[in-house]
Amino acid sequence: MDRRLGMDPDTVTVLWCTTDGGERQKARTLLLRNAADVLGVPKSEIWVEHEPGGRPFLGGAGAGVRVSVAHTRGALAIALTGGAQVGVDVEGVRRLRAESMARAWLHPAEAAWISGLPEQERSVAFLWLWTQKEAVGKALGQGLRGGGMSRRMPAEEHWPPGPHAGSAPRPLPGFDGLVSCAALVNDGRHVIGVALHGDAAHGSDAGGVGVQVRRISGTPA
């Protein structure tokens, strides 16, 4: 098995950075740069294409590496793995009407969980779930269509989350081959959600798949 970064089917590598604008173009450039580094090939041998639904994939020497890209104002994230289909999402932490938004859009059990938290924790908890839902939609290649917002994410036994930059994804209740997790980065200023879909995601609750989250330079080389 090829154990290079991003080619290991048991590892998802998430690279993120803060930006001062131009997130969409920077995300594409950084994806190509880091995929080339992973594979040890020139950037000219890799390019980005898109499926009809919009999900990106790598052509050329990057074929076979699963990727996902996300960006929000002031930050971006890219995910690479050699295993299952992957999705990533990033959101800036900000004050939201989290309780009412959760009642309107989320699974009832998730809405109840958010309502039971201290008020100052509810916005980040909502984004913790939101980013995972967005990531799952990307891993499935369908976005949030078909009730994606109400799809229940793994329950959080310990809250608030610790400062760990990465964890083992856990299964979504009632969905085989779908796992997700989230991480707080940038001193809690951003949340990154990650999801996997496919055979390589099975057994993730037993530690079969790990997520490594690492900050990179936001200046494309």
Rank of each mutant, 00 (worst) to 15 (best):
M1D: 14
D2R: 14
R4M: 14
L5E: 13
M7H: 13
M7K: 12
D8T: 12
D8E: 15
P9Y: 08
T11S: 11
V12D: 00
T13Q: 04
L15Y: 07
L15R: 12
L15G: 02
W16V: 02
G21R: 07
G21L: 03
G22T: 04
K26E: 03
A27Q: 01
R28N: 11
R28W: 09
L31H: 05
R33S: 13
R33G: 10
A35H: 07
A36C: 03
A36L: 03
L39W: 01
V41H: 04
P42F: 03
P42N: 01
K43Y: 02
I46N: 00
I46W: 03
V48C: 14
H50K: 12
H50Q: 13
H50T: 13
G53A: 14
G54Q: 08
P56V: 08
L58D: 08
A63L: 15
G64S: 13
V65G: 07
V65W: 06
V65P: 02
V67W: 08
S68M: 04
S68W: 02
S68R: 04
V69C: 07
V69K: 01
A70T: 09
A70G: 09
H71F: 05
T72H: 05
R73P: 00
A75W: 07
I78D: 03
L80P: 01
L80W: 03
T81F: 10
G83Y: 06
A84N: 01
V86L: 08
V86K: 01
G87W: 03
G87P: 02
D89S: 02
G92H: 10
G92Q: 12
L96G: 12
L96F: 12
L96R: 14
R97K: 14
A98H: 08
E99Q: 14
M101F: 01
R103C: 03
A104T: 11
W105C: 11
H107Y: 12
P108S: 09
L117A: 02
P118E: 06
E119L: 13
E119A: 15
E121D: 13
S123I: 03
A125Q: 00
F126W: 10
W128Y: 11
W130A: 06
T131D: 08
V136R: 05
L140Y: 02
G141F: 06
L144R: 12
G148Y: 06
M149H: 06
S150W: 01
S150C: 10
R152M: 14
R152V: 11
M153R: 09
P154V: 10
A155H: 08
E156T: 11
E157L: 13
H158K: 01
G162R: 04
A165H: 10
S167W: 10
A168F: 13
A168Q: 03
A168C: 12
R170E: 13
R170I: 01
P171T: 13
L172H: 05
P173F: 07
D176I: 00
L178Y: 02
V179F: 05
A183H: 05
V185K: 05
D187Q: 11
G188W: 06
R189F: 08
R189Y: 07
V191E: 10
G193Y: 09
L196Y: 05
G198A: 09
D199C: 09
D199R: 14
A200W: 12
H202C: 09
S204D: 03
S204M: 08
A206R: 15
G207F: 10
G208E: 11
G208Y: 04
G208R: 15
V209S: 07
G210V: 06
I216E: 11
S217A: 15
T219V: 15
T219H: 14
